[in-house]
Nucleic acid binder design. Structure first.
Lengths: 286, 286
DNA sequence: ATCCATTAATGCAAAATACGCATTAATAAA
DNA sequence: TTTATTAATGCGTATTTTGCATTAATGGAT
């Protein structure tokens, strides 16, 4: 069943006149007659009651007119929507990002995206570092913003930002400036650090940091969640190393002492992802 | 856009394999390829991401698969429904009938109809005799069951039943049998009769009845509503002439004395009514 | 009652479209 | 490197659709 036929039918059901309708839909009366005939054959029912003089809808025709009008406009909407998805103006994209940047660069990124593609549905999720690649490969997320460098096959990666690490201490703490730090004094501290993952470049940087002071820190708690760490530091349970992006979070009672170590923020995506939404975002934002 | 194409698409979206799909839908792989291609052209978007080895849905294709599945099954349901309307198995019909038969032949008629066409909507109304033809012509009712013979143009008519007139009296009344009736004794009675309409064949029969006894009845009240008349007779306010169909109504305290006058029940319908529901009912019931 | 104007249906040939067969080209696996 | 698999494509054929011209039915006018 051709949708065009249904459109012809609807036009005729409006006009109830073959000639006028045929002219309106730009075919000949003969063609219209046959279109309606074959539509009736296909459905196995009569749409119009007609003699050589009058055209009238049958009850079944009347019913179909009403229903088809609705269905056709629904279909039209669906097709339009699909086209938008195809053009990357619509659709959904799921982005994983670390908590650390949710107050610094994430707002900028999101503002840019929503301004350019107001129809775009964005889903933000937080995923443990170790799961990010899996999630990416299994289409659970489309874009991973991370501090880890990946050399995985099939995953493309790009650096978009970098910020410094900072030592995070309570305001009352004796460490005030970078110059206050020394191996001696650092050794005496209790640290709250992220989980030490195998192959995580972020934790490697932190390890490198401690190596530069030439000691192994006393870590009493591991957490990947920055907000947890910050809360613990504020309560005086220990001090932490965090990216200074956290300074953008409103965190009274804390002091960030910048360290001469940089941590990169990268975006990862599937190399074979042809979702135009993604292409647009990559083009736009990064 | 041909719905068949969409079906091909859905099959391919399931299998993600041209050969297998082509075999399944009974066309060649070549034809399937072109169907999909022209569908994509028509929509102006890509449905599948494909190389010579793999077939995969694009986001737009995925979206359309989901939506089209729903739409197609809706359309199928609609077409089935329309077919039922066409066959007269669905739809609505409005029937006017006299009160007198609501306990005798109406239940049989309705039982037959609903058994044969359970999906059919039947609307029962009671219409004054004088309005029946108007209502029929103006499409307010589709079928009029009546005791009046019509010779109106455009109205078809058929006799479906006939019953006797009966004299209705209270049980205590001195009239017990037909033999008790005489012109003398009838003259003394007060009568409750239906409205004496011009051209109503029913009231003509009643007039003929009185003519056979050669007197003019003392009518103190006219009513077209049998249940009203019966209530009045039971209270002893007078006696009445009614079709003996009323004997089927449970009416204690009354005696029906059959009279040798018959009254026909007819059905009337529009000659040009091509509603298949009507045709079915006429075929089935009468 | 007859004629006329209107209008849906239809025969036919041309045009457009769809189809199948055979082949090609790309690619993953052996 | 070879082979098997598989989507795309060229081409001739079959089918379908279209437009033109004509027919046939019908309601309205005279």
């Amino acid at each position: 069943m051709d949708l065009q036929r249904i459109k012809y039918f609807l036009a005729l059901a409006e006009q109830l006149h073959y000639w006028k309708t045929a002219e309106k839909v730009n075919i000949t009366q003969s063609a219209l007659t046959r279109q309606i005939q074959s539509l009736e054959n296909e459905l196995g029912l009569q749409l119009f009651e007609r003699n050589k003089r009058n055209v009238k809808l049958t009850p079944a025709g009347k019913f179909l007119k009403e229903k088809w009008e609705v269905e056709l406009s629904e279909l039209e909407y669906i097709h339009q929507f699909a086209k938008q998805i195809y053009l990357g103006e619509r659709g959904t994209i799921t982005i994983a990002h670390p908590d650390s940047i949710s107050a610094s660069i994430m707002p900028d990124i999101l503002a840019k995206i929503t301004q350019a593609f107001p129809q775009l549905q964005i889903k933000l999720v937080q995923v443990l570092y170790e799961n990010q690649l899996d999630f990416l490969k299994n289409y659970k997320i489309d874009l991973a913003i991370t501090r880890d460098i990946t050399s995985e096959q099939g995953i493309k990666s790009k650096k978009i930002y970098s910020d410094h690490l900072a030592l995070v201490v309570p305001l009352a703490h004796s460490f005030k400036r970078f110059e206050d730090l020394s191996t001696e004094r650092l050794k005496a501290q209790k640290f709250i650090l992220p989980t030490k993952d195998e192959g995580s470049s972020y934790s490697e940087i932190i390890q490198a940091l401690f190596k530069s002071y030439d000691f192994v820190p006393d870590v009493f708690l591991h957490s990947e969640f920055g907000s947890t760490i910050i809360a613990l530091v504020r309560k005086g349970l220990g001090i932490a190393i965090l990216p200074d992006s956290y300074m953008h979070h409103q965190s009274p009672g804390l002091r960030f002492i910048p360290l001469p170590f940089k941590t990169d923020i990268l975006i990862n995506w599937r190399a074979d992802d042809h979702n135009p939404v993604l292409a647009n975002i990559l083009k736009l934002v990064f």
